[in-house]
Design a protein around this nucleic acid. Structure first.
Length: 116
DNA sequence: CAGCTGACAATAA
DNA sequence: GTTATTGCCAGCT
């Protein structure tokens, strides 16, 4: 069905829905789209994001909580500053506190955990 | 025109 | 338990 709509548009739409002060992982987004194996495509969508600043790609991070190593946006650490500026807490490990900031899809979609 | 690479994650061994 | 490979869509060479 919506798979015809293309994968990127869906990624952009979902990422754009990430609330301020919250973060999501590539795998999480891919999983929401019904493609748990397309995590790379999510990242690739960011690489070619035609939306630019309207695309909070800085809110999209690795599953471990670290920022994308290849995140090129001018100067290193920019992503971290953007997140901190939104109220995201960073651990001393240089990772985002996923437990506290990993984005969860509204209360309407409680859990998409496999097998439940 | 066709093939390879690419901001990751999950499954298999 | 860890390490290696596969899967995916689109853009670029």
């Amino acid at each position: 069905m919506r798979r015809q709509a293309g994968f990127f548009p869906r990624v952009y739409d979902l990422v754009a829905r990430i609330p301020r002060g919250r973060v999501a992982t590539y795998g999480q987004i891919a999983r929401m789209l019904g493609a748990p194996r397309s995590a790379r495509i999510v990242g690739w969508a960011m690489h070619g994001n035609p939306h630019g600043r309207h695309m909070p790609c800085h809110r999209v991070i690795q599953q471990g909580g670290s920022c994308s190593p290849n995140y090129r946006v001018g100067d290193p650490g920019a992503q971290r500053r953007l997140l901190e500026r939104e109220g995201v807490r960073f651990l001393l490990d240089g990772r985002v506190d996923m437990q506290a900031h990993q984005w969860q899809p509204g209360p309407e979609v409680p859990r998409r955990r496999r097998g439940e």
